[in-house]
């Protein structure tokens, strides 16, 4: 059924993404691809992967934006995957019943056996969360790693989405955003986490934490570059043939 659950889920599993911390390393996207290429939504087809015009299905993509000007400007790395919205039109527009939102935990999924590949759900999603797999002829999307988070064959620490488990800086958090006492909900409250494109009315579950205010006197790009003095003194190595060899080797 592509009608939304009549009783909103009390559990709302989702991600909280800290834009203050993300360094834009794309590790979350790579691990997402790695896990999902063999998991619930497999295969995630790639075409011409090592050729001139590679293309393929990804559930998680990392954009980098500049916001503001000069000293107040920011460069922000911005990972984006399915936001598992409360009222997503990608589910209701589906003509076949392939798209659905789980009543139990709010995860939005595609039943690949029902999907006819009409692409309308990707048109209805403002966030670009759904991608068409040319090879299989059906729609693919982030499952919030439904095949990890409930997977009892994995260690408890592994039962989080692949993107969360791999983030080297801890910029991604996973939890129940329907529970106001959960650590993710408290993080959102404390850091004033926000929705993307709230004007669409989809009520995303995933939240983004804004970059923190810049500390006064933290340097940065206040016009002239900071003066740090000579980078390093050039050492006199004329009397040390071994050190001279090492120096040549290292500066090659």
């Amino acid at each position: 059924m592509t009608s939304l659950p009549t009783e909103p889920a009390t559990r709302r599993l989702g991600l909280v993404i800290d834009l203050d911390i993300c360094v834009g390393c794309h590790a979350c996207a790579v691990n997402c691809k790695e896990w999902n290429a063999g998991g619930h939504m497999a295969p995630l087809t790639d075409f011409d992967a090592f050729g001139e015009k590679p293309s393929g299905v990804w559930f998680n993509r990392i954009h980098t934006f500049e916001a503001g000007e000069g000293a107040d400007g920011r460069t922000v790395h911005f990972p984006k995957s399915c936001l598992h919205c409360e009222t997503p039109d990608c589910v209701t527009v589906c003509p076949t019943g392939a798209s659905f939102k789980r009543a139990a935990d709010g995860i939005v999924l595609v039943n690949e056996d029902f999907c006819i590949g009409c692409k309308l759900c990707s048109w209805a999603c403002p966030y670009g969360a759904r991608e068409f797999d040319e090879d299989v002829g059906v729609m693919k999307k982030c499952t919030l790693c439904v095949d990890r988070i409930y997977n009892e064959t994995l260690d408890t620490v592994e039962r989080v989405p692949a993107c969360v488990s791999t983030c080297p800086v801890g910029a991604r958090h996973f939890g129940d955003l329907g529970d106001p006492t959960s650590s993710v909900s408290q993080l959102v409250a404390e850091r004033e986490g926000y929705d993307l494109m709230p004007e669409m009315g989809y009520r995303p579950t995933n939240k983004y934490l804004p970059p923190r205010p810049r500390k006064v006197g933290s340097g940065g790009t206040n016009g002239a570059p900071c003066h740090t003095g000579p980078v390093a003194e050039q050492a006199d190595l004329s009397a040390h043939p071994f050190l001279r060899w090492v120096d040549r080797l290292l500066t090659r």
């Binding site: 980098t64 934006f65 500049e66 503001g68 107040d72 400007g73 920011r74 460069t75």
Partner: peptide, 12 residues
Amino acid sequence: TGLGRFGAVRLF
């Protein structure tokens, strides 16, 4: 992006 609070947003 929610980054409008910092000013104009450009894709880098």
